[in-house]
């Protein structure tokens, strides 16, 4: 009895229906990446251990498994519960260096390393780069960004809070080295948006 109580207190539950939930979450992420600026619904459908948000956990459980590497920002890596939760549900390999990661989970966007610290891919294999999944407070308040590029009919915009002051310039450098580059997925409570490497971002 006491053993099972200890068990449940260490590892929180994942998706109730992994097949259907993973499809719905993937579809939301696919829509967000193919139509930058579009904010779509992401019904996480799980409870994640603090400081991991339910939406970050949902994207991680949808995309990560034993074939992928994952980097956690210091706030997440410091939590043994978060590490145990992700290892148990995905079997993912957690790496210490951002450069080795296929995915990166970030809860503290302001403290995130420079984009250039993550895997950029190579000219031959630009797909071998890091996808950053970052939790933000809001996807419709805060810094207003004007977006252009593939996936956008004419112009699109996105507002993000928080928005580190250096990130706009870093994204311009990221865009300039296309096809190499980082893709960013942002999640807030029940919602997801994305800035793939093709999007040019300006502060409006």
């Amino acid at each position: 009895m006491s053993a099972s109580t200890a068990q449940t207190s260490t590892i929180a539950t994942g998706f109730a229906d992994p097949v259907i939930a993973a499809q719905a979450n993937f579809h939301a992420a696919m829509t967000a990446l193919s139509r930058p600026g579009t904010v779509t619904t992401l019904s996480a459908g799980l409870i994640a251990p603090e400081p991991l948000t339910a939406e970050l956990a949902a994207v991680a459980l949808t995309l990560a498994d034993h074939e992928t590497t994952l980097w956690l920002d210091p706030a997440l890596a410091a939590s043994a519960e978060v590490v145990a939760y992700l290892r148990f549900h995905t079997g993912v390999r957690i790496v210490a260096k951002p450069r080795d990661a296929a995915f990166a989970l970030v809860v503290d966007l302001a403290g995130m390393p420079a984009l250039s610290a993550f895997a950029q891919g190579t000219d031959e294999y630009p797909d071998r780069s890091t996808t950053i999944i970052a939790a933000v407070q809001s996807l419709d308040a805060g810094r207003h960004l004007e977006l252009a590029g593939p996936g956008i009919a004419e112009r699109a915009s996105l507002s993000l809070d928080p928005w580190p002051s250096n990130l706009t310039a870093e994204l311009a450098a990221n865009r300039a080295q296309f096809p190499r580059g980082i893709d960013l997925v942002f999640v807030s409570a029940g919602r997801v948006a994305a800035l793939p490497r093709t999007t040019s971002v300006s502060e409006g």
Partner: peptide, 24 residues
């Protein structure tokens, strides 16, 4: 199976981010 779907889904997201590039 779900592992195969995850692998294909990861490839699709990369493909969308790099239009026209063939993701293995």
């Amino acid at each position: 199976d779900e592992q195969t779907k995850r692998m294909i889904r990861r490839a699709i997201l990369k493909a969308i981010a790099i239009p026209g590039y063939q993701v293995p």
